[in-house]
């Protein structure tokens, strides 16, 4: 309580940038979500700005009709507004958005999305902007790792994307993939085990190379 009685920390908390846009980055997401559920529409701007790119990226894995994906995202936000009163204040916002978007896209294009997902969905590449000086592996070696990930079944690629690259917890992954939480964990482990097996000979070659490097 003492904290809020003094004005000493003014500078550290100025949220408004000089370009006039309000910066939301340092906001507590759960608070924003709760405020939105209580009727504060301003929070939509925060949720939109924070997640629209993730949603668009995720949606593309199921459909290459970009306008359709965008429509689904917009509909998703309309529903958020409509369902506001019935949404849980404690759940993960990102998890909820991804689940709902996936459902929408699958509903709107079942056949297409299955095909797209199998063929083109969740295909990874190695992307490192700066080459690290004390690199332990060459870029090609990392590319091999990602090529092997790309050989996994699509559900395993998806779980790798959600868990490692979007930082989504197992309980949300479970909902997104329509499986149990324990299964989500098992699926992730299985994906990693398959990857390790697929890498087999390469892995030991990384290893010997590393010994030389040392």
């Amino acid at each position: 309580m003492e904290k809020s009685l003094h004005t000493t920390d003014l500078n550290s908390t100025s949220h408004l940038h000089l370009d006039g846009s309000v910066s939301f980055m340092d906001k507590d997401e759960n608070k924003v979500w709760k405020q939105f559920l209580e009727g504060d529409d301003q929070c939509l701007v925060y949720i939109y700005r924070k997640y629209v790119d993730v949603l668009f990226r995720y949606g593309q894995q199921f459909s290459k009709r970009y306008e359709f994906v965008q429509d689904c995202i917009q509909e998703l936000f309309y529903e958020l507004i409509d369902k506001r009163k019935s949404l849980s204040p404690t759940r993960s916002v990102k998890g909820y958005l991804l689940v709902s978007l996936k459902r929408k896209i699958l509903r709107g294009s079942k056949k297409e999305s299955k095909l797209v997902l199998e063929e083109e969905g969740f295909i990874f590449s190695f992307a490192e902007p700066v080459i690290s000086i004390n690199a332990n592996l060459k870029e090609e070696d990392y590319q091999i790792i990602f090529d092997k990930i790309n050989e996994l079944p699509s559900s395993q690629r998806e779980v790798i994307f959600l868990y490692f690259y979007e930082g989504i917890g197992y309980s949300d992954i479970a909902e997104i993939m329509n499986i149990k939480t324990a299964t989500a964990r098992t699926l992730t482990y299985r994906a990693l085990e398959n990857l390790e097996n697929n890498l087999g000979p390469y892995l030991s070659s990384f290893y010997t190379m590393m010994l030389f490097a040392q």
Binding site: L44, R57, I123, F124, E128, L137, I145, F146
Partner: peptide, 30 residues
């Protein structure tokens, strides 16, 4: 580095005008 350096290959970005008009539509709807 496996965690930090993986990217999705197909990743079309939202154009800026689409980004804005979607937000406008959402706020107008709200």
């Amino acid at each position: 580095r496996i965690i930090q350096s993986g990217r999705l290959k197909s990743n079309k970005q939202l154009a800026e005008n689409q980004y804005d008009s979607m937000l406008d539509n959402i706020m107008a709807y709200a």
